[in-house]
Structures are given as structure tokens and as C-alpha cells.
Design a protein around this nucleic acid. Sequence first.
DNA 1: TCATTAAGTATGC
DNA 2: GCATACTTAATGA
Length: 231
Amino acid sequence: MPKLDETLLTDLPPFSRLSRPEIRAILDEATPRRFDEGTEIFREGQPAERFYLLLDGYLRVVRTTPAGDQIIVLHISPGQLFGIAPALQRTSYPASAVAAAESLALSWPVRLWPSFSAKYEGFATETYRTVGARMGEIQETLTEMATQAVEKRVAAAVLRMVNQSGRKTAEGIEIAFPVTRQNISDMTGTTLHTVSRLLSAWEKDGIVRSTRKHIVVTAPHRLVLISGAAG
DNA sequence: TCATTAAGTATGC
DNA sequence: GCATACTTAATGA
């Protein structure tokens, strides 16, 4: 296996404070792997044997309700750690991770987690920062689900994806990974029909432009207004 | 206001 | 040509 380049990690928050030799040591223990779109990387409830860093691509983090339907909890973008059950004091994964687009990830056995946290300045603080940020995001989505009307929830979900993965194009800001109406309904607790109707209506209003699995937000400010965000 | 049912069209391997 | 993605209308909780 070819050696991984150190520049893969140097700019990422959990590793940015580390020296070259330290990063070298971490990389030498990492296993890189590519995942096709739709591939499950690990499943909810499985023993957490490894933790991961996403280098390229996008992931959906999915939980199954007791009723049996899937909920998309959040997305993971490049540069983020995931599958970090040890940071949550857990020995099994609390959710499944599915590649939303073709993705590339590094992983390490969980037995390395304690030494990573202890040895490497900034690793622990940064991981707990991201854990905190994600819990906050989930909380926000939950209260939103309970209190806001469907159109606001869908607008907020689209904006969240745009904020995480948006890239500018001539037309507007596009979501950088494939998303279906069904996916969006799984994020917002509604049906794909309702999402389809909303996107059609927004498209007629010039707020978005969408083709299959692909959404461009042409008027983000108007979506923000619909979402009813503060300000 | 929204889910459900149902019945269609469009798209891409 | 088939499965999947998407659209739309109608109905009713």
C-alpha cells in the first residue's frame, strides 16, 4: 500500500496543531477506503470497531425509528470525523453511515482512540467541539420538527445542505451531493410528495432549480425568509 | 395544513 | 425496457 501524504491531514482541525512526525505516525496507522454512492459504511447498533475521517465525498447519518422508518440525522462533509462512538462513551455505533456520493475515508481501530486523545494536542478538544456542534444541530432539527410547519422545515433542511456543501455556480448555489425528494422527506418528517410539491412551487417562483438528484438554490435569501430563521 | 392514494411522466443504466 | 425519480390531482383527516 502506498504511503499516504501528510498534507491530507495538516489543515484539518483535529490535526492542525500537530507536528509532521506526529501526523506521519497517525497516517501510518490509518486504513484508506473508497465507498461507492449508496454504500453503508457501518450500521446502527454494530460494535464500533473503527473510527473514521472523511477525506472526500459526503455521508448521510441515518437512524431507524422503532416504527421502522429511516431518519436522516445529519450529513458529514470532507474533513470531518465520524463513527466516533468512543467520544460518546459508546461501544456500538448510534447510527448508520451511508455514502451519499462516492467517498473516501480513513479509519483507525478504536483501541487507538485513548492514545490519540491523550497524546495529540487539539485532537480531543476539536472532537468534543464537533460532537457538541452536532448535538446542537440535532436538537435544533428536533425542535424545528416539533414546532415548525412543513414548508419551513424543508426550507431549513435545504439550507443546511447548502451551508454544508454548497458550491457557487452561474445559476446559484448547488448542493454538492445527490439528493432525492425522498431523502429530504427523511430529513424533515414529511412525504416525498410534499417535498416534490414544494420544490415545484419554489422552482416556479425562481427560488430553486432542480433536476433528478440535483438541486441548485438560485435565491438563497428567499429560502432563508421561508425558513423563518431569526433575523 | 398536510398525508395518503393513485395514476401518471421522465430519466438513466 | 425496466427500476427509480419525480409530478400532479383528488380526497379526506
